[in-house]
Every structure is written in structure tokens, then in C-alpha cells.
Amino acid sequence: MRSPSSLTRSAAVMAQEVTDVLGAIVVRGVVKAFGSGDVWTPALKGIDFSAAEGELHLVVGPSGCGKTTLLSVVAGTLDWDQGEVSVFGAAFNEMPRGKVTAFRRQNIGFIFQQFNLIPTLTLIENVSVPLLLNGMGRQAAESKALEWLVKVGLEGSGLKRPSQLSGGQQQRVAIARALVHEPRLLICDEPTSALDSTTGHQIMELLAAVARAPGRCVIIVTHDPRTYSYADRMTLMEDGRVIEVKSGEVLRTFVGATH
């Protein structure tokens, strides 16, 4: 058994190295606790994390270890207590809230476990939302949205509503929506866990195919071991800390070994 402290230190050192080389997403020493009054639950205990441009990065770990919290911090949707977060050179610590919101609007795409499509809007309208938020005109936004619906294999369904689709199809729409404005960072929290395993596989394949791009970093939180083979790297978390970072080759050997 290795002691947790030595693991933490090695992860921190590794994060530092990666940052120096690639420096896309850098989280250093972040502490975050939830609660109020006397009752506080620490969710992140001085975590170090980094992800690089062009990579598909998985975050895995047991339930409650802080994966979603880490993702929320990186996305700028959650304030934290201590430490530093920098996303493509933007230091969230030093930016006012409005700036972070604007940064998120332009640079980050989201895919949620529950899809979170707006039920009263058509698929085209749903997909065009990020473009509209960024000030694009409606017609231009909708034609771009249509292109993306085609890319995710939903040609001809643009005027349907989310409730008319299966879960897998809805997640395809969500992928189109997350990427339509060409964000530099794509954040996905358990994108396959609401889907059956075949569909989940198809969604991971699609994600790996359309999301991976030279300037873009894709971070995916997952429980599903069969998705490991798509990763360039993987961060393992436990109890609010990073315990290990594995490269893709190692993972594929690992997955191969378990099959």
C-alpha cells in the first residue's frame, strides 16, 4: 500500500510537468467544501489536475469522490475556497464573475447526464442556443445548427422536439449543441450513464469522432470502464484528490487485460 500523501505529491508533480509542456487546463491546490454553519463536507481537498489541448481526458473514481465538483470548478460554474484554476490561460481567480460567464459562453461546451434539452423547443432551436447566446443572428445560427444535426446523424429531424427522440438520440442533439459554437473546452459529466450499454458505446464513439480536435480539450467524467479505450489520458480520483494519472497506452493495455 502506498500512502495517500505520496500519491498526491506525485500527482501534483505530474500536473506541474504537464502544465509546463501543454498548459490547457490547470487546477492547482483547489479546496472546496459544501455546507453551512458547523456542518461542512469537503468535496475537493487541495486537488491538482491538468488536461492538455487536443486530448480526450477521462476523469474516473468512486461515487462522491468529487468528480462533478472538479468539473464544475473547471467550467467556472462553481466558486471554490482555495487554489487556482486556469483554462486556456484565463485565470478564473482573477476574473470578475461576468467575465467568467462570458468566457464560458464562448469557450466551453457542455454535455450533461440528463441531456438537459429544452423540451418546448425544436432540435434546431435547442442546438442554436449557444450561437444565439454569443450574439449570432437566428437564421445563421439555425443553419449552423442544422449542419451539426447532420454531423451527429440526425438529418431530417430538426423540427422534432426532444420528447420525440430516444435517449441516445437526445444525447446526440446535446453533443451537437455542445459543439456548435466550436468551443475550446468540452465538458461532459457521465454522458453515457443514462443510456443502455450499446447506445452508450455509440455515443462515446461519436464523441471521440466529432469532439476530438487539435485545439480542443475534452474532459469526460465516467463510470463506464468500456469508455476507457477512447481516452488519451485518464485521471483517477479518490476522496477529493487525484491519486493517479494514466496515459492512453496504459489504459488500452489495462482494458485489454480485463477483457
Binding site: 467550467a75 460554474t77 461576468g98 460567464t101 462570458a102 464560458r104 459562453r105 464562448q106 466551453i108 457542455f110 450533461f112 440528463q114 438537459n116 429544452i118 423540451p119 442556443v129 449557444p130 447566446l133 454569443n134
Partner: peptide
């Protein structure tokens, strides 16, 4: 949930 999603996607409180 929808409003939260919009907020995550960068919709400001003002909007």
C-alpha cells in the same frame, strides 16, 4: 433545469 443549463452555457443573469 433549463434555466440552469442556459446559465451554464453562459447566459448572464441580466439576459
Amino acid at each position: 433545469k433549463n434555466l440552469g443549463a442556459l446559465k451554464a452555457m453562459g447566459a448572464s443573469n441580466g439576459l
